[in-house]
């Protein structure tokens, strides 16, 4: 806990054109932890992710990367420290899984794009970790949604950054593969001391995989803390507008959040 925060947003305001989405947001990440960002559609979760990696310039406030102003890093410098998996990434038809994952090495390679030993190892390990070694030669557009999603996760891993920002990494995945991706993220977090931020819609995943849950509503942080403290029946009602039951399964020790409906 004596680490410098990998990323800190300090009084950050950001938006699109005339529209202000985030207004004076404060959020710091703890090294080696998983933070889940949850919130309704359009609440600004993706915007927070974008601000963290300078995909969207801030209007005011500062973003600190390892304690340094993010504006003092070049784009490749940021990419060496922070990997981002966008919410709806796209690749050209015909691009194979390996070709995609190799693009993760862009911030590390020179003019001629030689991967080098380190690069090849990073690509191989990303493919293996995501269970895609057998799919490496397949074009992405001929994969299932879940396989494709794992390829994009592999790309982010090959990038070799110590902070991973994942915008809805479990969409398109079946139950089993959702767990696989989340388990992978959790194990990277411990084995490689990586810092992870995930935008999640499934509150059960947020409750069980995150060390910390940040609830965003209308561009503001309305709750922040350990899952058990944050995910309450009241919060479900005020933020998501649903009645819900929240309980812990005695056998698995897992926390569940069961929405009942919109009725009050």
């Amino acid at each position: 806990m004596n680490h410098v925060e990998p990323i800190r947003l300090a009084q950050v305001s950001a938006g699109y054109g005339q529209r202000v989405v985030l207004d004076g947001l404060d959020l710091g990440l703890q090294q080696g932890t998983i933070t889940a960002i949850v919130g309704p559609n359009g609440s600004g979760k993706s915007t927070v992710i974008r601000a963290m990696a300078r995909l969207l310039p801030t209007r005011s406030g500062v973003v600190l990367l390892d304690g340094q102003d993010i504006r003092s890093f070049g784009p490749r410098g940021i990419a060496r420290l922070v990997s981002v998996l966008p919410q709806s990434p796209s690749s050209p038809p015909g691009l194979t899984v390996r070709e995609l994952v190799e693009l993760g090495r862009f911030p590390h390679t020179g003019l001629f794009g030689r991967l080098g030993v380190e690069g090849v190892l990073a690509v191989e390990s990303a493919l293996t970790l995501t269970g895609l070694a057998d799919f490496a030669q397949r074009p992405l557009d001929e994969l299932s949604g879940g396989e494709r999603q794992r390829a994009w996760v592999a790309l982010a891993l090959a990038q070799g950054a110590s902070t991973l920002l994942l915008d809805e990494p479990t969409t398109f995945l079946d139950v089993r593969h959702q767990f696989e991706v989340l388990d992978l993220v959790a194990s990277l977090c411990t084995s490689r001391d990586m810092t992870v931020v995930m935008v999640l819609h499934d509150l059960v995943h947020a409750a069980n995989y995150a060390d910390r849950v940040v609830v965003v509503d209308d561009g503001r942080i309305v709750a922040d803390g350990a899952p058990a403290e944050v995910l309450t029946v009241e919060l479900m009602q005020t933020v998501f507008g649903v009645a819900a039951r929240i309980f812990t399964d005695a056998e698995s020790g897992r926390m569940f959040c069961l929405p009942i409906g919109t009725g009050s």
């Binding site: 410098g77 940021i78 990997s83 796209s90 862009f106 911030p107 990038q159």
Partner: peptide, 11 residues
């Protein structure tokens, strides 16, 4: 050739 956000995120 990727989407804008991915390209930018890779530096």
């Amino acid at each position: 050739q990727l989407d804008d956000e991915s390209g930018r995120a890779l530096g």
